[in-house]
Design a binder for these strands. Structure first.
Lengths: 148, 148
DNA sequence: TTTAGTGCAAACACTTTGCAAAGTA
DNA sequence: TACTTTGCAAAGTGTTTGCACTAAA
């Protein structure tokens, strides 16, 4: 079922174009990348592709459930294959480092929210900000209180 | 200690200006608001204040640890008082509804991440995307698979 | 008076849109 | 051929920056 997606496209009246194939290939290869990174990757094969095409392709692929995105901070969103094992991102606010952890890590959260708030968590979209292990080691808890 | 913040400012060589006071007041009052919403509120008192001043004030207040922000989706970030009880935001991807839940709800997650990944979660910055109770009721689980 | 802060306008980063030309089915 | 998709360029958000002027200390 590696190539099933093009049938999905055609079945819904969409066309299979090289641009869309390249975008999907880039998302697959880069694992998590911003539209611009995807664009750069696509351009290595087809240099004429426009960034707006990347956005349109991502929107379509997302709508078809082939890819998803997460916000890993302030800037551009990060896209990855929906088929990839879902995972949660831990983003270190200090060094920017991104760690992926398996969804089991958040299972207790998911069930607690479901149970207490009737909320169905989109685990693949979850990003947790904080401080990573090494940054804590570098500067043990300081908090934002008055320094001096 | 309601007004302690102006001492904090002066102690660090920053000045206490009406603009900053108004921004802090707006953040306090609005609970969670985007820079533009804060701007609108500030303008009700001082119509001449420029949006760039809002951004600069927010940056400063955040740096001082008086306010924090979270990303409640794609658009602009949402600011709130750091002193406010920390809370987690649940954002419904379908209707956009925002629910606040107490940090206890995510305590199991926090300790699991700490334990297994040495990661120190910034709870106040945490936003969970998913589907709220009422949207689930409206359209029971459909997933993005082929519809027909 | 001295130095930080503000308003203004221009520059930026990221994304979306209109439209004619090109390409898929 | 018929209709979708693309490239291009321009317009849109949201945010930042340079600089002369204003104001806090």
């Amino acid at each position: 079922m590696t190539q099933a997606w093009d049938k999905t496209l055609r079945a819904r009246g969409y066309r299979v174009t090289p641009q869309r194939q390249l975008v999907l290939a880039a998302v697959t290869k880069l694992e998590h990348a911003t539209p611009e990174e995807i664009w750069a990757d696509v351009q290595q094969t087809a240099s004429g592709v426009n960034i707006s095409t990347i956005y349109r392709a991502l929107e379509l692929l997302e709508q078809l459930g082939l890819v998803t995105h997460t916000h890993l901070g302030h800037g551009a969103p990060s896209y990855h294959l929906a088929a990839d094992a879902e995972h949660v991102h831990l983003v270190c606010s200090e060094c920017g480092r991104i760690t992926e952890v398996p969804p089991e890590a958040v299972a207790p959260l998911v069930s607690a929210l479901e149970r207490n708030h009737g909320f169905q968590t989109d685990v693949g979209h979850l990003t947790v900000f904080g401080r990573c292990e090494s940054c804590q080691a570098d500067a043990p808890a300081s908090g934002p209180g008055p320094t001096a």
